[in-house]
Amino acid sequence: MEPLLSVRDLKMHFPVRGGLLLKSIGAVRAVDGVSLDIAPGETVGLVGESGCGKSTLGKAIVRLSNPTSGSIVFNGRDITTLGRHAMRPLRSELQMIFQDPVESLNSRLSVRQIIEEPLVIHSRGNSAWRRQRVDELLERVGLPKSAAERYPFEFSGGQRQRIGIARAIALEPKLIICDEPVSALDVSVQSQVLNLLLELQQEMGLSYLFIAHDLAVVKHISDRVAVMYLGKIVELADADTIYQNPRHAYTRALLSAIPEPDPRLRKKRILLEGDVPSPINPPAGSAFGHRVGHARYEETIGMDLGLAELEPGHWVAADPCCLTPEDWEKVKSESTKS
């Protein structure tokens, strides 16, 4: 099946300026060569620590920022370098839900104006039709009709997130980038919003790129999961597979760090030392090997650490620091065959 979204070798570098004339003295390699496909109706989860570039990737895909290099093909069309104007009709098919529903809703507009705005911009229907559409959307996301004439500050976090979702689905998009949509919510409200997102996906055939740092949440909602580390995807596989059989050392550490709500399972954790290295001057070789001080780090300098298909559909960075010796042998023999 033709993917709905196809990202190839995407790079998003931001210049670091310094000195008297504010010349560019380096670059933050926020996203550094990411390739990812999303099929129609599929949810791809994107996890990683803060600063790994997951939000930047999401923003680059909806073209809120201009990628440095690489390509983004959405619905068969290359949108990597489309200008604002050319991009506008596509925005109805490509929407975004943000983490902070307080900051992402204009506090001076009523809920009706907020949800109606995309319909107005894309000149859908007349005002009577739009009125009815807003009422339908509110009902769909589980808010009373009376909410339309009220203002964002009158609502709780969970309700505000529902308003954000109503706005995102107003134009019946094909793909929604969800950037940490439930991170700011309490658990009981979080499950309500997750259920809503799943229902909408079934009804409308939506695809999601679901960005989050809560691995249990990501696993619940995703078909496939990509693990990102320092601007690169290091493992990509089916959601169940990646949790049951993680192959990359970083994925294993990330999974073992989740506190399980079961006191009998006080497990021995794989504790990672230190923090994510700076994306300004990333290590020359394996970034993760560098963090843990791996013995084979020197070997990885200059090596191609791109993704290799270890099992069908299970991709992992070909990095001797992060794989078991058996997996590494397998990856090596695969690459010499092809």
Binding site: S191, L194, N195, L198, H220, Y243
Partner: peptide
């Protein structure tokens, strides 16, 4: 309700999570 509404790693994927209604 709090315990049930948390997705756990062994919760079946894409299943409907129990919720606490209201706020």
């Amino acid at each position: 309700g709090l315990l049930d509404s948390m997705p756990k790693l062994d919760t079946p994927r894409k299943s409907v999570l129990p919720t606490i209604p209201g706020m």
